[in-house]
Design a protein around this nucleic acid. Structure first.
Lengths: 273, 273
DNA sequence: GCAAATTTGTTCGTATGTATT
DNA sequence: CAATACATACGAACAAATTTG
């Protein structure tokens, strides 16, 4: 009973949404109907709906109406599954060839990816810093769009020193997937052995491009998780980075899992709360 | 030049914010000044500011004004640092006693935590499922508020089967920190050995309580990362969960790192982009 | 394919309330 | 207490997107 009217209206509607009185995917009453029902101005109704929108409970479509959101079934990605040689990277976070796709299919979901968009660029600062090269150095960029059950799932861009191409790893600049995975390919061609990687996670607002690709609202209501994976090879002076991969995942349809030591190998099921 | 006026105004202001023309922490012109400057209605100015607010670029305070947000220095937490015995949990994500705090101090930041709030509860569904007990079973809950440089940093709640107390681990229900860490304590008292853990990350809107504690807006603009850590002990039938910990971290001041294999042990520095 | 009806989006103007200085 | 600044609320008009006839 306390607080501004638009909040009380939002609370009332939220109750109807959470109690199942308004089912996911169905349309809410129109703004004019709600205005009459609550005896408020249309603008006040719009404030209430805006609040629910920013809380991710409803979404509005011009000319159509306001709809209760469908809960997406989150997809679970495993980040590290113990020591390196024992377990290949799962779930595509590392994107190592076809094995990752097989993992996803085994969970009854169907993945596919666009052909990589390959380009040679001058390294931006955040790429150069991670590859430990000077900004402006030539790097190969490989970008892929990934889908699960035809739903946009992740955007992934990897960067390699262009040097690798001149040394003989010419498939890096071909616009098609490397079936064995890029890490294995580099090992075969250049004898370059991956000894570890570091993954950094940050949460931020989507860019305009990302919002368009994932079908997210362009006002930053839904965050994306950025996974920065730096892969290292051995050298006399210690581990040296040879690749950096940026994976962008929308937070409304993804969960991440990190295992350490002995854990049950049950199928990863999404967690609430 | 395209689109609604409030978006063009927001774009213009955003440019001034990003170019440094308006410095972080300083006040923007008042709504009435902006109304005159852009020749728009005050409501239109408010729409523009609302957009920037939801993008996390500015924040408004009644009676004071609208301010460019201070970029928080993100704190980096390491989730898993290789095999279990080799590296203790860092950065408090596991919250194992004083060693975690020492790690933070070594990075030149000063951590502290509230005394744990201990209570005995009936296990909610999401707790019961992870501990593999029946919903409604008695569990011990230990809740702590954690700060870095006096800034609210994380909320952490751990659940243990109440059985552990009757078996002799009575310190679990004392409202003070367990200096050696709860895992070591349970090993000393009950001979219970942790063999692994699984961490699940999800991103969601903060609850009202979380928003108040972290000083976040209550309309869900800034997400929180929930870290669900299930700790396992050995048994003849395989790993069995003995503790579940929920850690809530606001996404605007935290980054997470996962290492695997050999990586440089440089100090964790925040990453942009 | 077009026109009308429906529904949300944008913009204006105005008045009053609440928090801070 | 007064002035300032943002918050809430009302009413109105037209625009843009979509569906329907």
């Amino acid at each position: 009973m306390t607080g501004p009217m638009y909040r009380r209206i939002a609370e009332d509607l939220r109750g109807q949404l959470e109690s199942g009185l308004i089912l996911p995917g169905t349309r809410l009453p129109t703004e004019l109907e709600l205005r009459d029902r609550y005896g408020a101005a249309r603008n006040t109704i719009r404030e209430a709906i805006r609040l629910l929108t920013h809380q991710g409970l409803v979404e509005t479509m011009p000319g159509r109406g306001t709809f209760a959101v469908q809960r997406l079934e989150p997809f679970v990605t495993t980040l590290s599954a113990g020591p390196l040689p024992a377990a290949p990277e799962l779930g595509l976070s590392g994107g190592e060839g076809e094995s990752a796709f097989a993992e996803i299919r085994s969970r009854g979901r169907s993945p596919h990816a666009s052909a990589p968009k390959v380009s040679v660029q001058l390294a931006a600062d955040h790429v150069a810093a991670r590859l430990r090269v000077l900004p402006g150095t030539q790097v190969v960029s490989r970008r892929q769009e990934r889908y699960i059950d035809d739903m946009p799932w992740s955007l992934q861009t990897s960067y390699y020193p262009f040097e690798f191409v001149t040394m003989g790893a010419t498939d890096l600049v071909r616009a098609e997937s490397i079936p064995v995975g890029a890490a294995s390919y580099l090992e075969q061609r250049l004898g370059l052995v991956q000894v570890g990687y570091r993954e950094r996670l940050l949460v931020r607002q989507p860019t305009k491009d990302e919002a368009r690709f994932f079908g997210l609202p362009d006002d930053g209501r839904i965050s994306v998780v950025t996974l920065v994976r730096t892969s290292y090879r051995a050298s006399k002076a210690g581990p040296v980075p040879f690749r950096v991969t940026f994976t962008v995942l929308p937070a409304d349809r993804n969960q991440l899992v990190v295992d350490s030591g002995a854990v049950p190998d049950e199928l990863a099921t999404p967690a609430l709360a």
